[in-house]
Simulated assay, not measured.
Amino acid sequence: MINKLLEQAELFVSNLFENKLSPKNFYHNIEHTKSVLDTVTQLAGRENCTEQDTQLLQMAAWFHDTGYVNVETGHEEESAKIASQFLKDKGMSQVDISVIEDLILATKMDVTPTTLLEQIIKDADCAHVASERYFETSEQLRQELIYKNEQSIPVLDWLNQNKEFFAKHKFYTQSAQVKLQPKKEMNAFNLQKKINKIEAKKVEKAKGKNLGRGVETMFRSTLRNHMQLSAIADTKANILLSVNAIIISVALSNLVPKLDSASNAFLVYPTLVLLIFSVSSIVLSVISTRPNVSNSTVTKEMIMSNQTNILFFGNFYKMSLKDFEWGIDYLMGHEDTMYNALTKDLYYLGLVLERKYRLLRLTYTVFMIGIIISALSFILSYHFFANVT
């Protein structure tokens, strides 16, 4: 019976979060719930829990954060109430409901678990400290608190709070201590490295060694120069388009009508050569200025791992406004990521410029060769026609 109830619980909690959970819950959402569910299942297996106990843990995992749909403070008690009401309506025994309520309440920060099942769900709820994506999930929690409290949290302050949490936190089950503790210690080591790096930058600023203004000037000047070069390339392409359009217009209006006369037969091939090279120059000019927009979808993970640049519209135009605002806030709070985005912007702008100027060089070469060959063909054709007649 409980297997069927777990399926119903999954559907209930998923719909509850989708319809009622605040969008400010960047961390305490369905993704976190599923992560806790997976971890309790793994820990229960390693701790040799019975099938019944494992299913009770899974049920508690599904409901342990549902209270966030109604309250912030004391959400564990609210979660227990929501779970209790749901399970009573589904006909679960009061004994099992009480166990699930106790498991949910055991996830409170100040509660020390007393039973094995409570230890398992407590370890699962805090297993993110041993996750390979720890810093990503930590940033999600920081953003959640920023939006909910409407108060900024400096990165260094947040990292120090994380450091204090690491110092106080402990895993309770034997399997978590074996499997998760080493990963937690590695995250703690990397956390300290981040703190040291930020503090070192603050010391440099205090000593007047901050190069931020110089770096910003460098990026501003270089990006402006590249934009000017791009504008010059577009202007050159437009000049070629205009010149060749005039040549084609003149040829079609003045030369082509005269080709019907036998006396003007010598104009056929030179005119054809001229038109071919003019059309080729126009096509190459259009290709050199044709815009190219990326079709890839940018994710938060890509932003935090420096895999993309959301400062370029071609990258962020598929993002929702909420995700874009989050990305900009993330850049403003992470100087290294911001400079990395500017570096990518400069690099890819350089690639675009290289393509434009390479095609423009080819276009001017085709135009120059076309003019020369067309002029020679007119002279040779006229000379040959004159000798024949």
Results as ranks from 00 to 15, higher is better:
N3E: 15
K24H: 12
K4A: 03
D323V: 01
Y172P: 03
G212R: 15
L362N: 06
K193V: 06
E7D: 02
A176T: 13
A237S: 15
Q151D: 05
E101M: 07
S381D: 09
L259C: 04
T337V: 08
D125Y: 03
I198M: 07
M338E: 05
K148C: 00
W158L: 04
Q174D: 09
K108M: 11
F26Q: 05
G208C: 04
L43V: 12
N210G: 15
N149H: 14
V178N: 13
R220M: 05
S93C: 02
V256M: 08
R220E: 06
G370R: 10
T114K: 14
T308N: 03
F166L: 04
T54R: 04
E7H: 00
M186E: 15
F63Y: 06
N309H: 02
S131P: 10
Y172L: 09
S138F: 04
I146S: 04
T137Q: 15
F189I: 03
V95C: 00
L259K: 07
N309Q: 03
K207D: 04
A176Q: 12
T363L: 03
E132D: 14
I82V: 09
M186W: 15
S131A: 14
F135D: 05
F135C: 08
M186P: 00
Y357T: 03
A188S: 13
R213P: 03
V286F: 13
V243L: 10
A200T: 13
D234E: 10
A188K: 15
I121Q: 02
Q181V: 04
K197Y: 12
I276T: 05
S374P: 04
N196T: 13
L117S: 12
F165G: 06
Y317V: 01
Y317L: 01
C126K: 13
N25A: 13
I100S: 01
L16A: 09
Y339G: 08
K194L: 06
Y317M: 02
H383R: 12
E31K: 14
T39S: 09
Y357N: 02
L37I: 01
V250K: 08
H28Y: 04
T114G: 11
Y382E: 11
N254D: 11
N15F: 02
F219G: 01
K209D: 03
D125Q: 09
F385N: 15
V273G: 04
L21G: 11
P23M: 10
Q143E: 13
A245W: 06
S175H: 10
L351P: 00
A237K: 11
N264I: 10
I247M: 12
T337A: 11
S280H: 08
I379P: 01
L5V: 07
A44Q: 08
G212E: 11
Q58W: 01
D157Y: 01
L267M: 12
N19L: 14
Q177N: 12
Q85T: 07
K184T: 02
D53H: 04
V178T: 15
